[in-house]
Amino acid sequence: MHDAAGHEDHDHDHDHDPSQVPSDIALRVKALESLMAAKGLVDPAALDEIIDTYETRIGPRNGARVVARAWSDPAFLQRLRADATAAIAELGFGGRQGEHMRVVENTPEVHNLVVCTLCSCYPWAVLGLPPAWYKSSAYRAQAVIAPRQVLATFGVDLPETTEIRVWDSTAEIRYLVLPERPAGTEGWDEDALAALVSRDSMIGVARLPAAAGPRP
């Protein structure tokens, strides 16, 4: 039953919780998808491609607002560290499924990476829809076993001295990576900062580049 995700040596206390059953409407969509795929009428990879096409209109950019506020307001950052669910709610964003959010901060010494074996464990109310690769078994398995190599495939090469922490989202706790504020953004307002924050940086598979020019 165990796949190659290395769960034995990873600290899991939720291995035996049943997976969350999706809503009836979501199950009907899954039924349509799998029947069409079984009949050879649709290629699941083609569905992922179509969804990726609409990535920019998928989900609110709520997570980026949270990050921009955290960079701009030290008091908010403190509240975010203490109780991310409540701090995020201050901005009017809530988990739709009652999940608790936890924010993990990137620093020059520590890089955080989020993985979950189920798409239902992705805080899409905050981050938008998960990218197709996030659900792939290759990502799920490799992120736990060999996070440094996974990051390299995303073009993120970290110094050997940087510690990588892998966070496995559960049905109860969803993680949001707080990326490092890019250099060259001193004095930028929250709107300008939020525009820099990518979805992938909040999963931990991207680092934000230094600002390329003056504040837009």
Binding site: A5, H14, D17, P18, V21, P22, L27, R28, A31
Partner: peptide, 28 residues
């Protein structure tokens, strides 16, 4: 005639069952 209502109902139930019986942390 590409799909019948019974097929849809059966498949949706199969997915629900898969979620109920798959431990969290495993692909469903």
């Amino acid at each position: 005639s590409l799909v019948t209502p019974d097929e849809l109902t059966g498949m949706a139930e199969a997915w629900a069952q898969a979620y109920r019986t798959t431990p969290h942390g495993q692909p469903v």
